[in-house]
């Protein structure tokens, strides 16, 4: 597994995948739909799939002494690593906003989504959707990625829009909690997001391995 991940990181990956993790700091932007940070991180991962295709990476990997399904595993491991690196930075910055900056007027007078555990849950859900739609879609052919990526963009921005709008609906204000308000509910939503991330990624991985076994390289 180490060799697989090392190959993905050092041979297949685009430098943009690493650079775009820094979009996680959008978590600190006031008056901005902060979930867009997720989109930019996934755009970085997309760049790696693009450069891997140009480098004939899939066929090269399939020729290595690994099982065909391990080619798929390598791509998922790499993507998850980038995604969780982004989530880690977002979580640290969310904690900063929940503690040191919890009374900051610049965040309090913000009509858009606040950085809180619900935001992190949505972040994980969006990464799960990326894994399901884009990576899963890519492995149907192992070369076509435009369709899956466009589908993902549409779904992702719909979800961002819904997540931004939800706390304006009467009764759902708790979604936009500041500091440690509604902490139980917030943590539940984070756990739900994490669960969805695991579920969608697992579903996608299993489907991708089956598809990849059937396709011709």
């Amino acid at each position: 597994m180490n060799a697989l991940l090392k190959k993905e990181m050092r041979l297949s990956a685009s430098i943009l995948s690493y650079l775009f993790i820094s979009f996680a700091v959008m978590t600190l932007l006031p008056g901005y739909p902060i979930l867009c940070g997720v989109f930019f991180i996934t755009l970085g991962i997309f760049q790696s799939f693009q450069s891997a295709r140009e480098a004939n990476d899939i066929v090269f990997s399939a020729l290595l002494p690994i099982a065909k399904r391990d080619v798929v595993k390598g791509k998922y491991l790499f993507s998850i690593l980038i995604e969780l690196s982004g989530v880690f930075i977002m979580a640290v910055l969310t904690l900063v906003r929940m503690t040191l900056l919890s009374d900051s007027q610049i965040y309090r007078q913000n009509a858009l989504m606040n950085a809180n555990p619900f935001f992190l849950g949505m972040t994980l859900l969006l990464f799960g959707v990326f894994n399901l739609i884009f990576i899963g879609g890519f492995f149907k052919t192992a070369y076509k990625f435009s369709g899956p990526f466009v589908t993902y963009i549409i779904l992702a921005f719909l979800l961002v829009g819904v997540a931004e709008a939800l706390h304006h609906i009467p009764g759902l204000e708790a979604l936009n909690a500041f500091g440690f308000d509604h902490f139980g509910l917030q943590m539940l939503l984070l756990a739900g997001g994490a669960l969805m991330f695991i579920l969608l990624t697992w579903l996608s991985y299993n489907k991708a391995t089956v598809s990849f076994e059937k396709i011709d390289l």
């Binding site: 041979l11 480098a55 004939n56 990476d57």
Partner: peptide
């Protein structure tokens, strides 16, 4: 076919 055209052979 050429693999990883823009990486060095050492890499």
């Amino acid at each position: 076919v050429s693999w990883y055209p823009r990486k060095t052979i050492r890499q």
